[in-house]
Design a protein around this nucleic acid. Structure first.
Length: 434
RNA sequence: CGGGGCGUGGCGCAGCCUGGUAGCGCGCGUGUUUUGGGUACACGAGGCCGCCGGUUCGAGUCCGGCCGCCCCGACCA
């Protein structure tokens, strides 16, 4: 994308409403604009990041065997009456009426809907297990939205729902999701720790929340450094092997890890290598048995012909929240430092002297070779402004093309995360970036 | 929902107490200048002073109501 023709409205000063780092930087880097309390429009750069995160989540869900679907945002109240949640869910649920005065709602979650879909089409134990997920906008009318995209009212979320014949099967599904989550967060460039959690209003008896570490996190967390040494990479643990999954689950849940609400001082005292810090919850997985399948009448024929009520679990990842959380984990005074995997562009090309034949030619050449993976700063601005904006936007690489080096076919390559710079030939720079 | 605060050009703010032609910095436009870390100067554009009502000769300023947004707490992915 050419910056001169793009809507990337960077700001030199911080809007008054933004308090925490990620919110300030998202506004300043031109990623989002608030349209009302807790509701944001995603501008080109922000939208690219959001899609990159969603894509990694998608790939890891697919790898675990889950299938992607897309359920609506607007739901009928009828389904929610069947589970009893229409009345039980508080004012956080946005209720609407259509023109025929029917009760509708903007979905805060989709257990009822997915259970209904399965109940319509799955009749035999042979069709289980199933794990279906979607990446969709949700709405929760929070009393007090805050922290920008981290605690908005409208948010993009990945939700998976598993259906198994019995408890043992559901436990396998649960472990697969835990593996998928660990691999997902690793690819996103953050350290995530699963911590035992309360099951809350959704109910159930097996639940973990995934916390990533960031100075500005909402809660204090404590964990054993053993987590930092676990290998989740593909191959080491197979989704196909229940033994692998059991071993993995054991590894993940044995070392101490707790948020401050569940912190146990006695157990903590026994941890050899203590780690602590602030954390942000970016994912949550639940097993809740037949809480929805039972009241909503989901039944399949078992091997012996009897009717069996499937066991369910649900698994969420806050996709839009992750944009903020990743910035909390990766930034400095100058701006964002995107992990390579989610950056809106791999590199920014900074043309320090637009109009200079050598600079223009080199920049155009690099831009063409990067095929959409670069943001070309072709504005006729001062060099200083371009450096500042590039640091703010957090591109992993900056390819700086100035008249000094351009005459000899040289460019400067800067790595945003480390600040490292090197004078290189165009080819050498491209080789490192691509 | 309890407590606190704020709404004045795109952004950050002053002006309000003590009513009398709406200001500053940044940004934006034009020109000159500068040319590798937000250059300097000049000129210029841009404002239903959140909304409604009241008081007054006169309201950004005083009074009443409403709306919006932010912060702390409780709550939450």
């Amino acid at each position: 994308m050419r910056l001169s023709r793009s809507l990337v409205p960077t700001l030199k000063e911080t809007p008054a409403e933004a308090q925490i780092a990620s919110h300030r930087l998202m506004l300043r880097a031109g990623l989002v604009r608030q349209t009302s309390a807790g509701i944001y429009a995603w501008l080109p750069a922000g939208w690219r990041v959001l899609q990159n995160i969603a894509q990694i989540v998608r790939e890891e869900q697919d790898a675990s065997g889950a299938q992607e679907v897309l359920m609506p945002t607007i739901q009928s109240a009828d389904l929610w009456r069947q589970s009893g949640r229409f009345d039980a869910y508080g004012p956080e649920m946005l209720r609407l009426k259509d023109r025929h005065d029917r009760d509708m709602l903007y979905g805060p979650t989709n257990e009822e809907m997915i259970t209904d879909l399965l109940r319509q089409s799955v009749k035999s134990y042979r069709e289980l297990p199933q794990n279906l997920y979607h990446i969709q906008w949700k709405f929760r009318d929070e009393v007090r939205p805050r922290f920008g995209v981290m605690r908005g009212r409208e948010f993009l979320m990945k939700d998976a729902y598993s259906f198994d014949l019995d408890h043992a099967g559901a436990v396998v599904a649960y472990r697969k999701m835990m593996l998928a989550y660990m691999r997902t967060f690793r690819r996103l460039g953050v350290q995530a720790i699963p911590m035992a959690a309360d099951t809350g209003p959704i109910g159930g008896d097996l639940s973990h929340e995934f916390i990533i570490l960031a100075e500005t996190g909402e809660s204090q967390v404590y964990y054993d450094a053993a987590f930092e040494r676990i290998d989740y990479s593909a191959g080491a643990v197979s989704y196909e092997s229940e033994a692998d999954l059991a071993r993995f689950y054991e590894t993940m849940t044995t070392p101490y890890a707790a948020t401050d609400e569940k912190h146990d001082i006695t157990a903590w005292a026994k941890v050899a290598e203590k780690r602590g810090g602030r954390g942000i919850e970016v994912g949550h997985i639940f097993y809740f048995g037949t809480k929805y399948s039972e009241p909503m009448g989901l039944r399949v024929a078992g091997p012996d012909g009897s009717q069996v009520v499937p066991h369910m679990g649900s698994y969420g990842i806050g996709v839009s929240r992750l944009v903020g959380a990743l910035i909390e984990a990766h930034h400095d005074e100058a701006g964002i430092k995107w992990p390579d995997s989610v950056a809106p562009w791999k590199a920014a090309i900074l043309n320090l002297k637009v109009g200079d034949a050598a600079c223009d030619a080199i920049c155009e050449g690099i831009y063409a070779k990067m095929a959409g993976n670069a943001l070309y700063d072709d504005r006729s601005d001062r060099a200083g402004a371009k450096f500042a904006d590039a640091d703010l936007m957090g591109h992993p690489w900056q390819i700086v093309v100035g008249p000094r080096g351009a005459a000899n076919g040289m460019v400067e390559l800067k790595r945003r995360a480390t600040g490292e710079r090197a004078e290189l030939s165009v080819e050498a720079a491209l080789a490192k970036v691509l």
